[in-house]
């Protein structure tokens, strides 16, 4: 109490009498307003396309087709989402429509399997590389590492040929297996395993625990946060797959929602069923966006640590 009283006049004296300090305070305040202004503008630009899509998905097809772009919600939201979910929207030249419900299910299964598969095979190979010494260890490690340089886009045709030869086209296995090798995840686990103290391994050996038991009882529990962070990133990666599903899926019952949405639009004619298409777009972006927002901490950790 005394201290506060004693300090107050001092502070007041400084801020009232020192023009430099006052100028600097005013500058700080201006800086804060500017920061709010720029950030708000950024948030609005980010949100604008989503807002238009969300609003558009609540109007009937004719309102959008006539080009009367609404800025506020209409009354057809429920009808549109039910129609999109059960029947699907379609481009005019493309009469076959796939229900969004089916496509979302396919995307969810594909994304989950890709994320889980990548984590499972990466954690096993990182464990082998870090905790064992065997001939060819480094050669194998480099083999995995080099795959970073071979994205699917640069080996489209021959990879497609392999999948055809293995009879995996138009199957969930064909969607998932060719993309679940992961150099990024292996590198991350390897880096993390190197920080596990040697004493842990010694203690395990003294207790008579073998490598598999050590993996299961010590390494796996320690890796929990890394696994969670990776899962968030890899789920989004899996959900957003485009070129690969486009190539190997012709059976509409296996269509994924990102590819399906782009097929609905076709060449973008004004006569498309835009209301159902907009509803599908919202449904298609909701799951990965929700994952990012709900698991923000893990997402940021995963992103900053797995960057290739």
């Amino acid at each position: 109490m005394n201290r506060v009283l004693a300090e107050r006049p001092l502070e007041g004296a400084a801020s009232e009498n020192d023009p430099a300090l006052r100028a600097s305070r005013a500058r700080q305040r201006r800086g804060r307003w500017l920061a709010h202004g720029i950030l708000l503008l950024g948030v609005l630009i980010f949100a604008l396309p989503i807002w238009i899509t969300l609003v558009g998905s609540s109007h009937d097809v004719n309102t959008i087709g006539r080009g009367e772009v609404p800025l506020w919600f209409g009354s057809h939201a429920i009808d549109n989402y039910i129609a999109a979910w059960e029947r699907g929207g379609s481009a005019v030249r493309n009469t076959r429509a796939v229900p969004a419900g089916t496509m979302l299910w396919n995307s969810a299964v594909m994304a989950t399997l890709i994320a889980a598969g990548k984590i499972a095979i990466s954690i096993l190979s990182a464990y082998a590389v870090v905790f064992f010494s065997f001939p060819g260890r480094m050669a194998f490690f480099w083999m995995i590492f080099i795959t970073l340089m071979l994205p699917v886009e640069v080996r489209i045709i021959p990879t497609f040929q392999v999948v055809v030869d293995l009879n995996l086209t138009d199957s969930m296995a064909g969607l998932v297996i060719p993309v679940i090798a992961s150099a990024t995840a292996t590198l991350l686990f390897r880096q993390f395993f190197l920080t596990i103290p040697d004493e842990y391994v010694e203690a395990a050996k003294i207790d008579g625990a073998g490598p598999l038991r050590f993996f299961w009882d010590v390494v796996l529990p320690l890796s929990r946060t890394n696994i969670a962070a990776l899962f968030v990133i890899l789920f989004i990666y899996g959900w957003n797959q485009y070129l690969w599903p486009l190539l190997i899926i012709t059976d509409t019952s296996l269509e994924t929602v990102v590819v399906g949405l782009s097929k609905m639009i076709g060449r973008g004619d004004a006569q498309n069923e835009w209301n159902a298409i907009m509803a599908t777009a919202i449904l298609a972006l909701l799951p990965p966006v929700a994952v990012v927002i709900l698991m923000q901490r893990w997402f940021v950790k995963g992103l900053t640590e797995t960057e290739k």
Binding site: L124, S125, V129, M143, P158, V201
Partner: peptide, 30 residues
């Protein structure tokens, strides 16, 4: 690491899923 497990077959077994996919879907097509 300084302290490691012994064994040659087990690590290869642990590596095999990743290696198989890498060879079939990366190195062969490339």
């Amino acid at each position: 690491k300084n302290v490691i497990f012994r064994g040659k077959l087990l690590p290869l077994l642990l590596l095999s899923p990743q290696l198989a996919i890498t060879i079939v879907f990366f190195f062969w097509p490339a």
